[in-house]
Design a protein around this nucleic acid. Structure first.
Ligand SMILES: [Mn+2]
Ligand SMILES: [Mn+2]
Ligand SMILES: [Mn+2]
Ligand SMILES: [Mn+2]
Lengths: 218, 218
DNA sequence: AATAAAATTTAGACATGTCTAAATATATAT
DNA sequence: ATATATATTTAGACATGTCTAAATTTTATT
């Protein structure tokens, strides 16, 4: 039986493996989990004993097939619950994270199957992140950062990288949501800020904001 | 911050206080929680320190107002989730318990409020048990055990006492559900079994079965 | 290649929640 | 009232997950 802590570590490693490539370092895990490197070392030994990860002293860790499937299933549950909260319980996209963080650990295959049915098999969560299927497979959408979009190109917002409440509220304030059409009409080279048109009005956004918005070009 | 274990103990004490009257003994809690008396002693000390219960050595425990409200809220969450599972996710009433046992510990006032709205403010769970309101108040329905019903009286099944999967499946097999009309047409005095009519057919049930069905007389 | 800096692991501690076995208190029986 | 049985608590142990401080290994610098 896997514990809640083990699931959280596996999920962190799963995300880090995708973010970086190759082995995930102890410090990277400690940063993401907001814990100490020594705690990480303790835990990765346990996870390696249980065959969820490959761990070589001082060399970082990587998920085994078993670990990847387990982690993907936690992510699947997290994102399905986020959809439920937004679609059915009137949560906004900046309110779902902490609750999903708890709900993702509920153990019941039937529950998550039926939730999937009830939500009519959603493919993406409220932040535009893809929902892994039962086997841990995940659809790779061809999305790019808004900061990479060429001048005068039209694109659609399909996701966010930073999904902190602060950033999401900033987007809300400026009426940027998933599905919103965006046109880049100016780029400042000195600070890499850009002017965009949304809902027929102009908005200047910083490099940081542009970096954290995923779009699909038309 | 209250822990999952503390919540489970409070809930057990809450149910036992209702079942018996007066102080709840260490052994009664140990039985209900399927743990050892020594573990109970350890935990009741913590709960008393946190003002959830009154504990006098060797004299058992009783909930404080704070403890009662906290316990009732766990019960509220448990029962609302059970309604959700049955009404929305196609669970049957014998499948919900273990999952609700986990879901009841999710911490989010908004979640449980919105779930209540989404389910349209249910007053009872799938087993006929009343759902406490936000303040821990609970409606007392005038229900009695089927074994107490007089000969030839017509009544309606409104709940069960034993909500084990075994018993619930027995009821399913014999087409007894909440809302089912029941007429007692014969009582055997030697073993206290009885013959009832449901859906126009006769059925003989044991004393134990009759004891575990709650009904409302007409 | 030797040294300094950074990353990682180990050692020892603590908190939570559990257990067994032993001690103590309460209840029951003679 | 004393002895016996039952209920409860205490003592000491263990597992999980965390931490700080010290030791060790790896990486970067000169
Ligand atoms: Mn989590
Ligand atoms: Mn998300
Ligand atoms: Mn529980
Ligand atoms: Mn119930």
């Amino acid at each position: 039986m896997i514990t809640l802590s083990e699931e959280n570590y596996l999920k962190a490693i799963y995300h880090l493996e995708r973010q970086m490539g190759g082995a995930v370092s102890t410090n990277a895990i400690a940063d993401k989990m907001e814990t100490k490197a020594s705690s990480v070392t303790d835990m990765v030994k346990k996870l390696a004993d249980k065959d969820y990860i490959i761990y070589k002293k001082y060399q970082g860790v990587s998920l085994t097939a078993k670990g990847n499937k387990t982690a993907a299933n936690v992510v699947r549950k997290h994102r399905l619950w986020e959809v439920f909260l937004v679609e059915k319980l009137n949560f906004s996209w900046d309110e779902v994270h902490d609750v999903a963080e708890q709900l993702e650990h509920i153990k019941s295959p039937k529950l998550i199957n039926e939730l999937d049915v009830f939500l009519e098999f959603p493919t993406h969560d409220p932040h535009g992140d893809p929902i892994p299927d039962k086997d841990g497979n995940i659809s790779k959408l061809d999305k790019i950062s808004l900061s990479k979009v060429a001048l005068n190109d039209l694109c659609t917002c399909v996701g966010v990288i930073d999904s902190s409440a602060e950033f999401l509220k900033y987007l809300d304030k400026h009426k940027i949501a998933l599905g919103t059409q965006i046109k880049v009409i100016e780029k400042e080279s000195f600070d890499e800020s850009m002017t965009i048109v949304i809902h027929n009005s102009e908005l200047n956004i910083s490099k940081t904001v542009a970096n954290n918005i995923y779009v699909k070009t038309h």
